[in-house]
């Protein structure tokens, strides 16, 4: 091969390696979950109705056994998305369909409802201000936005229930709890939300896997002015 040919081959290989590296890096650092826009779903100033569900196993994708949240889009379709675009200083009526079983909390403080309107949540229609995770069915997950002090414990369904949902999106035919809260979005900014129940099975302290991956048990409230 001529010198020019060898140089061209070396350059092509170099560019291929650089391209692959960039693809891997950007694939790693950029969110893999879509953003769901709730800013234009209702007239300006009107409350936003946000409905999400927590499932024990997503049932599809690269990690079908991972626990996950899903969100109902303004068009009424359930999708795996944990970045939600919301208007600032707006009331959000949050409905959570909890399809997963529960356990005692590592720290019972996360059984205390906080940051919601009235300091309570409606658990299947009944208002509660805290939940004893050592009794009943325990707490499956929490929906928490630490920066605004929002903590919503999601009481688990009985693990012995015959109709536990195994593949998302789950429908109300499966065992579930309905949790409703209202809160007000803060000023514009990006606010991380997470679960405080270490539900990343098989990972260190239960906080790896789905607990550390966008699109599963954590995401952002992308609050816009």
């Amino acid at each position: 091969m001529s010198l020019r040919g060898r140089l061209a081959t070396a350059l092509a290989l170099f560019l291929a390696v650089v391209g692959l590296a960039l693809w891997v890096v950007f694939g790693f650092i950029t969110p893999t979950t879509p953003t769901t826009d709730f800013t234009s779903a209702q007239p300006a100033g009107s409350p936003v109705n946000l409905t999400i569900q927590a499932v024990g196993a997503i049932g599809f994708g690269p990690h079908p056994t991972w626990v996950s949240y899903l969100v109902k889009t303004p068009a009424g379709k359930w999708i795996q998305s944990t970045i939600w675009k919301l208007p600032a200083h707006t009331k959000v009526n949050l409905t959570i369909m909890q399809y997963d079983s529960g356990s005692p909390l590592r720290n019972q403080i996360w059984g205390q409802v906080a940051g919601t309107q009235g300091g309570t949540e409606l658990l299947n229609g009944k208002p509660i201000s805290f939940y004893n995770s050592y009794g009943g069915n325990g707490v499956g997950h929490t929906f928490a936005v630490p920066a605004i002090g929002l903590v919503v414990p999601l009481v688990g369904v009985p693990s012995s229930a015959p109709n536990i949902c195994g593949t998302a999106p789950c429908t109300p035919n499966y065992a579930h709890n309905v949790i409703k809260v209202s809160f007000t979005t803060p000023s514009a900014g990006s606010y991380s939300w997470q679960c405080f129940v270490p539900c990343g099975l098989g990972t260190l302290y239960g906080n790896g896997g789905p607990m550390g991956a966008l699109g599963y048990m954590g995401g952002f409230l992308d609050v816009t002015a």
Partner: peptide
């Protein structure tokens, strides 16, 4: 004692 809950911290 900082162990885990149902996720059992280490191996599961």
């Amino acid at each position: 004692v900082p162990d885990a809950n149902g996720a059992d911290g280490g191996l599961y």
